[in-house]
Design a protein around this nucleic acid. Structure first.
Lengths: 146, 146
DNA sequence: GCAGATGCGTGCGCCGTGCACGCTATTCTG
DNA sequence: CAGAATAGCGTGCACGGCGCACGCATCTGC
């Protein structure tokens, strides 16, 4: 029972992760928002939306890539008008990365489109099942092995 | 209600996908199995385990990368002894990619370890909740927007 | 004040990836 | 049956993201 459950979940998650790159869903979402950005920019953008204004090192830890990568992504996002480099008044070495209004709107729009697709699928489910799945998924992400 | 559900699911899936690469879970799993392989080899390996013996073009369609990438991954996996290039008796142009016994065992072992981690998390859940989540996730992967 | 530490951006090399090409084998056509 | 067209495969090439290491500016402890 439980072993079957764990195996099922593992297989499903593997497929989910694999297909997220295969179908190019994020790539399409990002490409619609701004020119010259690829899907690799999305984790940086959404990570910054979660953390709020922070420096490159902290954002790198959240996203899980090197600081240099964050710095480069930040340059591209800045050029696209989604992000702003703001000098930290308390520390003149530090640079605070903050979303512009356009950046906040872009994240909201991408999340909306993504949620829209998911709702279109969940709408066909029995009433309680979708909510149970959403609750379980949320809990799994919070407590899970990732 | 439903909009909150869709947004929650979208956010959770985004985090799940992001962290799967950030934490290097697959990378660690693959590195334990064979030397000289990175996490990018896992989709090819597990995809071949799902399809069974098939040619490079079909496997490329399943994994979602170019045929050339499959061919290169196949060379590395072949060198690692996990995969075998087998001439197709019916078509001497074609090359069937088949898992060796070591390859089958490697996939099974990686799945087992992954499932083990997940079960360790799910074990603390209320009895019915884990099963409901597993069922929902399975259904979502089958029907979902990916 | 000065040495060590911290934050940041950039040059460099590595590697995965897609595209295009060439080769071999197969299939279609007259 | 022969020749052209097609399909499957592997590889050279260029592109781009990534981590590492370095240099510069700034802060902090003694």
């Amino acid at each position: 029972m439980t072993s079957l459950t764990g195996g099922d979940v593992a297989e499903a998650i593997g497929l989910l992760i694999q297909r997220s790159t295969r179908t190019g869903l994020y790539a399409a979402l990002v490409a619609d928002i701004a020119e010259g950005l690829d899907e690799n920019a999305y984790p940086v953008l959404s990570g910054l939306a979660r953390t709020g204004p922070c420096n490159a090192a902290d954002l790198a830890a959240v996203v899980g890539i090197d600081r240099s990568g964050v710095s480069r992504h930040a340059s591209r996002l800045e050029a696209a008008g989604l992000l702003r480099r703001q000098p930290d008044p308390a520390d003149r070495r530090a640079v605070l990365l903050v979303l512009t209004e356009a950046g906040v709107a872009a994240v909201a729009e991408m999340r909306r489109r993504f949620a829209e697709r998911i709702e279109a699928c969940l709408a066909t489910w029995p009433p309680g099942e979708a909510e149970a799945f959403a609750r379980g998924l949320r809990r799994f992400v919070e407590e899970g092995p990732f």
